[in-house]
Design a protein around this nucleic acid. Sequence first.
DNA 1: GCTTAACCTGGACGC
DNA 2: GCGTCCAGGTTAAGC
Length: 328
Amino acid sequence: MSLLRSSSELMAKHMSSYPPKRYNLSWNLADCSFDDVNLLATLTCGQTFRWRRQADGAWLGSIGIQAAVLWQPEDCRDHFFWQTFPVENDWAIIRDYFNLGINLRALQRGWHDAEQLTADVFIQHVGLRLLQQPLEECLYSFQCASCNTVTKIERSVEELARLYGSPIETPWGRVSLFPATSSIATASEEVLRKALWGYRAPRLIALAKLMQEKGDAWLQGLVGMPYADAHRNLTDLPGIGPKLADCVCLFCLRKWEAIPVDTHVLQLAQRLWPTQNEYRSLTPRVYLQIADSYRHRYGVYAGWAQQILFYSELHRTRPGWIPCQPAI
DNA sequence: GCTTAACCTGGACGC
DNA sequence: GCGTCCAGGTTAAGC
């Protein structure tokens, strides 16, 4: 259970680690004493691409039609500070975005008991939470992930927002909201190709045009569907395969059993559980077997566990890797 | 049902 | 400085 607090008493409690001052900005405090939140791990684990850490440690980004700034003291996992723009103090958007109703500590105790091999990973990356992202942003952003690197995905998505998104002013500077479907549908393929989207540019525009035809209700309808139905509807879209469909299911549709199987997740499963077959390539059958191996071990919230393991694997295979470079 | 090639491009790496 | 390889996938053709 996480609580919104803004009382002077709580502020005073945390004065030793008070966030940076900016003009007349008034911070709010999210006190999560009963659970864990790790902003660094949560915002850089590969589930979202547009949060940037500023020189003073504040995270600047957007959630839907709001810009937001977040700040958390070093090595602190029980509270963070936040503010939203242009509508200030929008607690609901922060609470929902971080899924603060999910008791992560309880989940981690369950995973610890279920699979001793990975118990240390969950302790090491405590507080990595899955986000509930806006549907359109998640759907279009992950179209860029095909045969790409995390660094380039971040730059590509940022360019898309800068070119076609609405700007919001904050004390840290301008933040571009993620573009609406209508803006992407009418975007220039040539411009997008130069904005690092390459051969993915026509796919992105085609998908946006199709989503315009289907209407907002179609996408929102996925929220109420069971995981299998939502996944099947998504893979029927052009340019959306099983992996991207699972990303959308997990990162914005709250289908916690979804397991996006990529090369890292495949290698991790083969290393952790060597009894698994030595797969040569990620065929649909192998994809399902690997995903089921995670679901079998970690249960209905397997997607949360998988993302923490994925984050750990990124750090293991890329020592010194620093995602989300600070803005200059 | 599996394998393979094509699709872009920037960064890492070896020389 | 230059060449080569690789990266969070999807799709279609060939077997």
